[in-house]
């Protein structure tokens, strides 16, 4: 059931843990939250024969603070060497906490929340003007929807009928200082997007099969942009990180790292049963 993706979400998680530990940095929980989404996108959905191909699908990690999950995916795709990956958060590197377009495979630099979707709208509109079949995927966080610009973009995308635009919301219910329901309650997220004229799909953001089915079944020649509300668990796979605010920023100790690695191994075994 879980082998439909050619990019192992468990390997992505292992790399996230290894690199976070080596660099002694945080944003681990956010990266673990989007791991399965990236596994599906880069495993079977995005049409990218080459990261430099101008006719490729575009992907924008609007929640740029999950960039480590993207680097891990690029490494597993063969777009990054191990030497490059090991420069994560090092001096003179293109692999910072937030993605930089100077790195091959990164279409747009992100990190300031609320900017990626607007760029995605332009990208999708350009593809339509050029009459290509390119699609644009934008991964946003739920708390990112606090930004008014997200809704500016959502309105224009619906008005322009950009069905080649696909937004995925990482609905993990957390943000930097608290749970989203306590900061700015965005419930019901799906209905909000529906009311903005989008084609909405709720999925389990950790189910490879469900996400693959929904994403591959989208009609990108319709008249409606698509949003996938991916219900996720912050810190997915690491027992002590799951749904804990602390792990938005916190780096791991040696012992926490060992536990996390064991947890990921257990997750893989559980899911393969």
């Amino acid at each position: 059931m879980e082998n439909q993706s050619v990019i192992s979400p468990y390997k992505i998680r292992e790399i996230i843990l290894d690199q976070s530990k080596r660099a002694h940095v945080g944003h681990i929980g956010s990266a673990l939250s989007v791991t399965d989404i990236l596994s599906v996108l880069y495993g079977s959905i995005l049409k990218i024969s080459d990261p430099d191909d101008p006719l490729r699908d575009r992907f924008i990690l609007s929640k740029g603070h999950a960039a480590l999950a993207l680097y891990a995916t690029f490494y597993l795709k063969g777009w990054l060497t191990k030497e490059q990956l090991d420069t994560y958060c090092a001096n003179d590197s293109h692999l910072g906490v937030h993605p930089e377009h100077h790195l091959r495979g990164v279409d747009f630099s992100t990190g300031s929340l609320g900017q990626g979707l607007s760029i995605g709208v332009g990208s999708a509109l350009a593809a339509r003007l050029k009459k290509t079949s390119q699609r644009t995927f934008v991964l946003v966080s739920d708390a990112e929807c606090n930004e008014g610009s997200v809704w500016e973009a959502a309105m224009v995308a619906a008005h322009q009928k950009l069905s080649n635009l696909i937004v995925i919301i990482d609905l993990n219910g957390q943000q930097a200082l608290g749970y989203t329901k306590d900061v700015i309650d965005l419930n019901p997220m799906s209905k909000r997007w529906q009311s903005f004229g989008w084609d909405v799909h709720d999925v389990d953001g950790h189910s490879i099969s469900q996400m693959t089915e929904v994403l591959s079944g989208l009609n990108t020649n319709s008249e409606t942009p698509h949003v996938i509300v991916a219900h996720t668990t912050f810190g997915k796979g690491v027992s002590y990180m799951q749904n804990k605010i602390k792990w938005h920023y916190w780096p791991m100790s040696e012992e926490e790292y060992r536990t996390a690695k064991e947890d990921i191994a257990k997750l893989q075994i559980t899911n393969s049963k």
């Binding site: 332009g122 350009a126 003007l129 973009a153």
Partner: peptide, 11 residues
């Protein structure tokens, strides 16, 4: 933002 996306696409 839109202009950024369109310029990257060659416009």
């Amino acid at each position: 933002g839109m202009a950024t996306g369109m310029a990257e696409a060659g416009y």
